[in-house]
Amino acid sequence: MSSIILEARGIRYRYPRSMEAIRGISFHLRKGEKIALVGPNGAGKSTLLMMFNGMIHPDTGTILFDNEPVRYDTASLRMLRKRVGFVLQNPDRQIIAPTVYQDVAFGPTNLGYPESDVKKAVALALSHVGLDGFERRPPHQLSGGEKKRVAIAGVLAMDPDVLVFDEPTSGLDPSGSEDIMELLDELNHGGKTVIISTPNLPTRGLTVLSSCSREEFSRKIFPKWHSGIRNLCGWRTFLPRPSLNYILSCRNVVSLCRIRNPGRCWT
């Protein structure tokens, strides 16, 4: 079993003048795993994801990266963000430069790579996401799927160990979603640890869950209701209310845990 790369211990977070977004979440992620964080809108998925690269500081609890508690000084955050790449839900909010090349080169440049290395990193990242030849294109001329790929390439160019995707297929058509999920599979097979958030398990979850059949999925994930499940779209009924309750292991689908009570898992 590979070592733990990312861990959350008793995380709580409340937005200023707002309700508590995360209540005492604990879980860990091993190197090379691919995990989907599943929950309805407003469940706190994005908030939790933003803690992984230090964008949000939990009120209580600890985030550990490589078994070391995350520190929030500038130098430590730079190192953390180099190793934990974050792809935002809306690529328009992530793509900041006027051309694809400049955007993908943003991370490596700020990490102080020499120009030749920046060019290599950009070429490699663009080729990885299938956007060779797009270097000079301005982002506003790209389709939604292409923008998403540019955003992913921008993170890949920094060669992180962990890739965090906030709803990677939102706003994409089925074919675009399929392409993105295939890309995530490839990245995961290439050794990257991948964590995604999604509110929409039946379609996107099953795409990720390529290692098991629909039957196996329903049996393993919902053993209590297995006999009653004919259509997985019914999964929503199992989510009691908008709070972050579930995390699903997608690579080796074996458990559905109540995050508030990590000891209680169905296997």
Partner: peptide
């Protein structure tokens, strides 16, 4: 946020 997430250090690449 997007710039900070990618280690912004006052540099912008240009082709």
């Amino acid at each position: 946020k997007a710039m900070e997430a990618r280690c912004y250090d006052g540099k912008f690449a240009l082709l």
